[in-house]
Design a protein around this nucleic acid. Structure first.
Length: 286
DNA sequence: TCTCAGGGGCGAT
DNA sequence: ATCGCCCCTGAG
C-alpha cells in the first residue's frame, strides 16, 4: 500500500457516518466500492495507507475524495461560534466531509429517503450485488456500485428485490434521466437544485445532500429530521418554519460553512440526543 | 404481536 | 403551503 502523512482526519467517523454508505471496516482496514473502483484505506496514527483497484496508485482520486486540500483549522475556526458546535467538535474531533462521485451520491440518496442508515447500506449492497461488476481485492470479493445505465436498464423487479420498496421506481426513472442527460452541472447553486428537483425521488433534502457530499458546496447541508431537531431544540428556531426558512437560517448563521457545521451537529445530536434531553438542557417537548 | 420512526418525496387539496 | 401515504426494517 502507498503511504502518506495524514493529520486531523477521523477516517472512521467520516467514512462510516451518515454521508457515505459504501464503506466496510474489515480487520482494521476500510474497503470502499465505487462505480469503477475499489479503494482500500488504513489509518495508523498520522499515516494513511492507501491503494486503488483495479487501476493502482490513483492518488488524484484519493486526494479529491478525502478532500485533503482543505484548510481544516480555518474551517473549525469559522464554525465554532457557540457552545453546541464547540461540544460537537470536542466530542467528534477531526470529522471531515467527503467529495463523492455524483452518480453514486444521487442514487444512494434517493435510497436514503425516509430510510435509516443500516437499511440504506443494505440496499446499496443489494443493488451492487445485483447489478455491479465483481472485483477481487485481498481475496475478498467486492461488487462495484452499478452504473446509472445498468440501473436504468434493469427490470423494475430486479430493483424491487434490493428492498428499495417504493424507491425502486425512482431509482429506475432517475437513473434513466441521468443516463440520457448526463451531469448538467452549472456553478450556480439554485440552478443545480432546480435541475435536481426534476428527478423523481429527489426533494429539497436529498438535493442538498448531493450538493454537499458530491459537489463540494460547503455552505449547504441536508436538513433531515436530526438537523431540524437541532435548529428547534438548540437554536430555538421556530418549529413551524419550513425547509427553506430553516435552510436560510443555517446558511446565514454559519456564514459559508453551514455544511461543515451541519455535519458536526448532526453527528453530535444523533448520538447524544437522549443524553442531552435527559439532562434537561433543552425543553422536553417541541 | 404491535407500534413507531428512519439522513423524505409525492400527489391531492 | 400543508398533509396523508408509502416499502421495508429493526428497536422497543
Amino acid at each position: 500500500m502507498n503511504e502518506i502523512e495524514l493529520h486531523n482526519y477521523n477516517l472512521e467517523k467520516t467514512l462510516l457516518g451518515g454521508q457515505s454508505f459504501n464503506w466496510d471496516l474489515i480487520d482494521g482496514t476500510f474497503y470502499g466500492f465505487f462505480v469503477d473502483k475499489v479503494v482500500k484505506l488504513k489509518q495508523e496514527e498520522n499515516k494513511l495507507y492507501w491503494q486503488t483497484y483495479p487501476e493502482k496508485d490513483n492518488f488524484d482520486f484519493i486526494k479529491q475524495y478525502l478532500r485533503l486540500g482543505v484548510d481544516y483549522n480555518k474551517i473549525l475556526t469559522q464554525i465554532n461560534k457557540d457552545e453546541w458546535v464547540d461540544a460537537s467538535i470536542k466530542k467528534y474531533p477531526n470529522l471531515r466531509i467527503l467529495k463523492q462521485d455524483f452518480d453514486q451520491t444521487l442514487i444512494s440518496y434517493i435510497i436514503s429517503a425516509n430510510n435509516n442508515i443500516n437499511s440504506i447500506r443494505r440496499i446499496v449492497r443489494n443493488l451492487s450485488r445485483s447489478l455491479g461488476k465483481q472485483v477481487t481485492v485481498d481475496n475478498l470479493t467486492f461488487n462495484l456500485f452499478p452504473s446509472v445505465e445498468s440501473i436504468a436498464q434493469a427490470p423494475l423487479e430486479t430493483l424491487l428485490e434490493t428492498k428499495a420498496g417504493y424507491r425502486a421506481r425512482y431509482l429506475k426513472d432517475s437513473a434513466q434521466k441521468l443516463f440520457v442527460e448526463g451531469q448538467k452541472l452549472s456553478n450556480n447553486e439554485d440552478e443545480i437544485i432546480k435541475w435536481l428537483l426534476e428527478f423523481p425521488g429527489i426533494g429539497e433534502k436529498v438535493a442538498d445532500a448531493i450538493l454537499q457530499y458530491s459537489l463540494g458546496f460547503d455552505n449547504v447541508t441536508p436538513l433531515d429530521v436530526w438537523v431540524q431537531r437541532i435548529l428547534i431544540d438548540l437554536y430555538l428556531v421556530d418549529s413551524k418554519a419550513n425547509y427553506k426558512k430553516m435552510r436560510a437560517w443555517l446558511q446565514s448563521y454559519f456564514n459559508g460553512y453551514a455544511g461543515w457545521a451541519g455535519q458536526f451537529l448532526y453527528e453530535y445530536y444523533r448520538n447524544e440526543y437522549k443524553f442531552i434531553k435527559s439532562k434537561s438542557l433543552v425543553g422536553s417537548d417541541n
